[in-house]
Design a protein around this nucleic acid. Structure first.
Lengths: 192, 192
DNA sequence: GACATTCTGGACCGCACAGTCTACTATCCT
DNA sequence: AGGATAGTAGACTGTGCGGTCCAGAATGTC
C-alpha cells in the first residue's frame, strides 16, 4: 500500500478546530478526529498529544484567528461604529451551518468542568483580550469625538462582549438573520 | 434494614434539576443522580424513565419556574423599566455558585446534538415564550407612553433575551458583580 | 396471613471511547 | 545499502457509564 504524503500539522489542526467547534469536546471522538484530520492515531498522539491537549491547541488557534480579525477591523483607527457594525453584519450574514456552530470558546465555557482551572484561566484571559481590543477602540473613538464623553469605554466593551455572545447563543438555536439584525441595531444604539 | 419512607417526586426532581444545572447533562452520572435524589436506580427508572427523559422533565420544571417569575415581574403592568431592572439586579446579586451554574437551558442549547429535533423544538418554544413575555410587557409600556413610539417591542425583546444570555455566559466565567452592573446599565439605556 | 406493590442494593451487560502497543511500510539522509 | 524517522492499520486494554435484572425487605390491602 502506497504511503500517503506527509500531513501539514496546521491543516490537520484546522480540521480538529472544525470538529470541536461543530460537535463540542465530548461529542468529538478520536475516530472522527483521525478521519477528518486524515492522520493515524499514532501521528495524532505524536504530534498533538492527547485529546485534551489537542483541544487546547485548537482553542488557541481559534482564539488567535478570531482576535486577529477583530484587531484588523479596528486597525488604523477606523470609525468605531463602523467596526462594530462590521462585526455584527458578518455575524448576521453567516450560513446556517456557521450559526449552528456558534463560538468554540463560549461552548467551552458552558461545558467546562467548574474546577478545571487551566481551562478557566485560558477562557478568562481570552475574554480580557477581547475586552481590551474593544475598550481601546472605544477609547480612541472617544478621543476623536466619535462618541460622547459620558460613555465609559470599558463598560461598553463588556456590553458588546456580552451581546455578541448572546447573539451567538440565539443564532445557534435559530438561523434567523432578521432577528440578529434587529438585535444588532439595538445594540449599536448604545453608542449614540 | 428498615425501609425508608416514600420519596416526594417533586423534591427528587428538584435535586435532579440542581445537578443537571450545575454539571450539565453529560457530566451528571446516574450514580450521582441516585445519591442526590435519594432514590434507588429502580425507583428512578420507574418514576422518571431513562436519563434523557429525566433531563427533559428537569428542563420543563426549570422553564416553568423561571418563566413564571418573569411573568410575575411584569404582572399588573408594572413599569417596564423597573421590570427589566429587577431582572438584571437579581442576576447581578446572585452568588458565585449561582453565577457558575449559568442557565440550564442555554447550556442545553450549546451542548445539544444539532440534529436532536426534540431538544431543538423544546428550546425554541421556550425562547419564543420568553420573547413573548418581554414583547407584551414592552408593547403595554409603549401604549402607556413609557417608551417612545419609535421603539419596536419585538426587537427590544429579542435584544433583552440575547443580552441576558450573554451576561449569563460572562457571569459563569467571572463572578464579577460590577461587570454585570455596568452591562445592565448599558442594556437598560436601550429603553431611552 | 397472603399477595401485590414499592422500595433498596447490587450484580451484570454492553457499548463507546481514550489511550497504548505492535507489526509493517515508506521516505530521507548519509 | 542501511538505518533513522515518520507514517499506517489495527488489535488490545481499561474504564466509565447507561440500562436491565434480580433478590430481598418493608408496607398496605383484602
Amino acid at each position: 500500500m502506497p504511503r500517503a504524503k506527509e500531513f501539514d500539522p496546521e491543516v490537520a489542526l484546522q480540521a480538529a478546530v472544525k470538529l470541536f467547534w461543530r460537535l463540542g469536546y465530548e461529542h468529538t471522538s478520536l475516530d472522527l478526529l483521525m478521519r477528518e484530520m486524515k492522520i493515524s492515531k499514532q501521528s495524532l498522539y505524536d504530534t498533538f498529544g492527547d485529546k485534551r491537549s489537542l483541544y487546547f491547541q485548537a482553542m488557541r488557534y481559534y482564539r488567535k484567528s478570531t482576535n486577529d480579525s477583530l484587531r484588523a477591523i479596528f486597525a488604523a483607527d477606523a470609525p468605531v461604529r463602523e467596526g462594530f457594525s462590521k462585526i455584527f453584519n458578518s455575524m448576521v450574514r453567516e450560513t446556517k451551518q456557521q450559526h449552528e456552530q456558534g463560538c468554540l470558546l463560549m461552548s467551552a465555557n458552558l461545558s467546562r468542568n467548574l474546577n478545571d482551572t487551566e481551562m478557566t484561566n485560558f477562557l478568562r484571559s481570552n475574554q480580557r483580550e477581547v475586552e481590551q481590543i474593544f475598550t481601546k477602540a472605544l477609547a480612541n473613538a472617544q478621543k476623536r469625538g466619535e462618541i460622547s464623553q459620558e460613555k465609559k469605554p470599558a463598560a461598553l466593551a463588556k456590553f458588546f462582549v456580552a451581546t455578541i455572545q448572546g447573539m451567538r447563543a440565539l443564532a445557534r438555536l435559530n438561523h434567523d438573520r432578521k432577528e440578529l439584525e434587529h438585535i444588532s441595531k439595538v445594540a449599536l444604539s448604545s453608542l449614540d
